[in-house]
């Protein structure tokens, strides 16, 4: 009975994190982008600096008519947002936030492997949406998504493999237990490759060619309205949480901090994740969109060679010190 209660509490916490953190990041994005562009951003909803803007958006989305185009593949079209969203929920359960045994939703032995595999499923949602909409712009967006996934999954995988080599395990808590501060400079190239490839998988600017509004309206999501559209947006922000959390755990030492690792471990994890999320927003404001051929070129001719070099470096150092 106790075990069941324990599991239930964990699941509720994971679900709450999944519901709340993406909204926090979304609201931060509203405000940070606005201030970087010399605007105020939302100021009205909720009174204090527009804190309830996303709640208001949610209420609006829930009341909007749900239009499924007559030409669309109805079932697939309606299912796509769920397929895009749920994988990120499943990934969150495996991300450890503190040093103790219990500070993780559930220890999954396959760790990195599980996480990368499940994250890959999320992109299927975009593909389903792009194909099922029966819209030329959606189709183009879906195909661009596919190309982007193919190009960036690989450097991400290789960079993650480098960490697994360094730690000698694929379990996420195991990696954190093996972490030392000097992994930071040692794995820095892998970290950059992982983070950039992750951004590209989330289709965040400057890698937002699949949803480029000036060319293909909103890519695979063109035909969506109301709640289903909102779920796609939620998936994007949940993706930011997951990417930043994983980068923190794999490359930045997770709950390790200069002091107070035992009691305050989870604060370090959240802090690092928040800083990375800020960087994600910052990049959106700073960089123009990459063209499709530049996207592919960056992945195949820069990130993959860099990731391979990182693996070689990791291998040499690891054998040298053991």
């Amino acid at each position: 009975m106790n075990d069941a209660l324990d599991v239930a509490i964990r699941l509720v916490v994971v679900f709450a994190v999944f519901m709340v953190l993406p909204l926090v990041i979304g609201q931060t994005e509203h405000k940070v982008m606005a201030h970087m562009q010399g605007r105020l951003g939302p100021m009205y909803a909720g009174g204090f600096h527009g804190w309830a803007q996303l709640v208001a958006d949610g209420v609006k989305f829930a009341q909007k008519e749900d239009v499924v185009p007559a030409a669309a593949d109805r079932r697939i079209f309606q299912l796509a947002p769920a397929v895009a969203l749920l994988p990120y929920l499943l990934v969150l359960v495996a991300v450890p936030i503190g040093p103790s045994e219990g500070a993780v939703g559930q220890v999954v032995d396959a760790g990195i492997f599980f996480v990368l595999a499940v994250m890959g499923v999320g992109v299927l949602g975009s593909l389903m949406a792009g194909w099922a909409s029966a819209n030329k712009f959606s189709l183009l967006g879906g195909l661009r998504t596919a190309a982007q996934l193919l190009a960036y999954e690989l450097p991400m995988l290789l960079a993650a493999a480098s960490v697994a080599m360094a730690a000698g395990t694929v379990s996420l808590p195991g990696i954190l237990n093996a972490f030392h501060w000097w992994w930071l400079p040692w794995q820095i190239v892998g970290a950059l490759v992982f983070f950039i490839a992750g951004l590209a998988e989330l289709q965040r600017p400057p890698f937002d060619m699949p949803v480029a509004d000036s060319e293909i309206i909103f890519g695979a999501y063109t035909e969506y309205t109301g709640l289903r559209f909102a779920l796609f947006l939620l998936a994007e922000y949940a993706g930011i949480v997951v990417l930043c959390g994983l980068t923190t755990v794999l490359f930045l030492g997770g709950w390790h901090g200069p002091f107070g690792a035992d009691g305050l471990g989870w604060v370090w994890t959240l802090l690092k994740t928040a800083v990375l999320a800020f960087v994600v927003i910052w990049l959106r404001v700073s960089y123009p969109r990459l063209r499709e051929d530049q996207l592919q070129k960056l992945a195949w001719t820069t990130l993959i060679p860099l990731a391979l070099a990182q693996i070689a470096l990791t291998g040499i150092v690891k054998v040298a010190i053991s």
Binding site: L11, P81, L86, L89, L90, V93, G105, V108
Partner: peptide
């Protein structure tokens, strides 16, 4: 561990 993951998947499906 995987049954917990499965439970979470059920929660997610219920949510949607």
């Amino acid at each position: 561990s995987y049954s917990v993951v499965g439970l979470l998947a059920v929660i997610g499906v219920l949510f949607v």
